[in-house]
Amino acid sequence: MNKSWLMRSIILLGLIALTVMPTLQANKEKPQIKINDFWIVLAPAVANNTAGYGIIKNDGGQADTLIAIECDNAHVMLHKTEINSGRAQMIHLHNMVIDAHSEVVLEPMSFHLMLMDLNKETFSSETDISLRFKFEKSGVIEVKVPVREPQY
């Protein structure tokens, strides 16, 4: 009786493992995107543009591609500052691949969000701004981002 119960338990556990393991494996291989520590520079009152910085992290085992960034308060683009022979150039990026188990840091003089045509009435240090990051596989991830004075 006990032996039969033990056998049944082992078979059951085996079946569960067979069912769950591929799912776990598949999840492990999926991209797992996190939008961390984003903030927007509180621009001078006369400025129409500003920048946003933060970290896009992929904890998953598969790459994902950032294909769009949307904001109701500004026109957002993804740029990279490159400095060659003392001259800074802004490179416009159509998309950005976030490799498996890696992160992309957006920071001054490097990758950054370019927010243009600001709806100035909505930008203040007292209100967070909503940004929607759209990824090829992970879909849309919305985050609330603070606006603050830079601590360069």
Binding site: I67, A68, I69, E70, C71, D72, N73, A74, H75, V76, M77, L78, Q89, M90, H92, L93, H94, N95, M116, D117, N119, K134
Partner: peptide, 15 residues
């Protein structure tokens, strides 16, 4: 580097 010259494709203004 004119704004108008930047091909925005998927990353574009929404307002």
């Amino acid at each position: 580097l004119s704004v108008l010259d930047i091909p925005t494709q998927n990353i574009r203004r929404v307002n």
